[in-house]
Design a protein around this nucleic acid. Sequence first.
DNA 1: GTTCCTGCAAAGAGTTTGCATTGTG
DNA 2: CACAATGCAAACTCTTTGCAGGAAC
Lengths: 158, 158
Amino acid sequence: MSSYLEQAKAILEAYLTQKGLRRTEERYKILKAIYEDLTHFDADSLYHHLLKGGYRLSRATVYNTLELLLACGLIKRYTFGEGSTVYERSLGRRQHDHLICLDCGFIQEFCDPQMAYVVEGVGRLFQMKPVQHELIVYAHCLADSCPNRRETYTFVQE
Amino acid sequence: MSSYLEQAKAILEAYLTQKGLRRTEERYKILKAIYEDLTHFDADSLYHHLLKGGYRLSRATVYNTLELLLACGLIKRYTFGEGSTVYERSLGRRQHDHLICLDCGFIQEFCDPQMAYVVEGVGRLFQMKPVQHELIVYAHCLADSCPNRRETYTFVQE
DNA sequence: GTTCCTGCAAAGAGTTTGCATTGTG
DNA sequence: CACAATGCAAACTCTTTGCAGGAAC
């Protein structure tokens, strides 16, 4: 059984072939970083993560590649809080929603099966076909000393 | 029984008094536009709406005032889709969520009582105190010819 | 060799900030 | 008449774009 990174590579290659696009080192490096090192990240933290790893590339390539990976379904993009954009890998992950700590920015993923009914119900009510939903719950830690460190959205444990 | 605009004015005045801030014409004009003319809007459409109404003011004032109205709870801010910021008035409106047409950008508000249970449940599970949630359902119109016009987010009927 | 992709730097959208001027209290 | 708020323009952040050089096929 192959790793998610290997599966992701296979999907990316299939997509590139189908579209007549090229296998560049940048695309593989970025995919690897996303599938091995990062959970919730933005374009800039991905860019700096690669630089820190000793790999030189430009921001434009990061943005281009994120669009590419979105197009072939290997990552998802969210917008949290005051409009900050956050990406995460999608392979091997079931649909889930996000609980965000207002004190420290900690992101907790969760999955509530009731959401499927809510989404289906609203689609039926308004004669529309839901294709996706995003639920974000903003909350405070109950512990007075919030245990979660305030960091960037990179490297958040699950 | 007074209108929501009048109630909103009263709340704004109380807030200004309490904080030692000033009653400027701009603040009242902006509040009036939000409570009388707009439903879902962004900073720029509010700015242009006021200009079209023959009232001169600067973008900086619009942004400042939106922050002020957020602070006293008279409006809410959301981020939809690719990070577009949308405001709406909050007075006289129950908690609701949004169903967004991917074809035309139409925003339908809805309210599902099940959401309260979902939010409460996730808070209990992770020992956090939820203060707010945002659910956005992205969908397609079932009618082949999407009946909703593609426009800006201003003046969306409810 | 053709075309795609990258890197760079400049442009763009949306928002914020600094500072002089205006106007409320 | 003090100091908060406005207007203006510049700055700022995040993202996109144009173009020349370089790499994949």
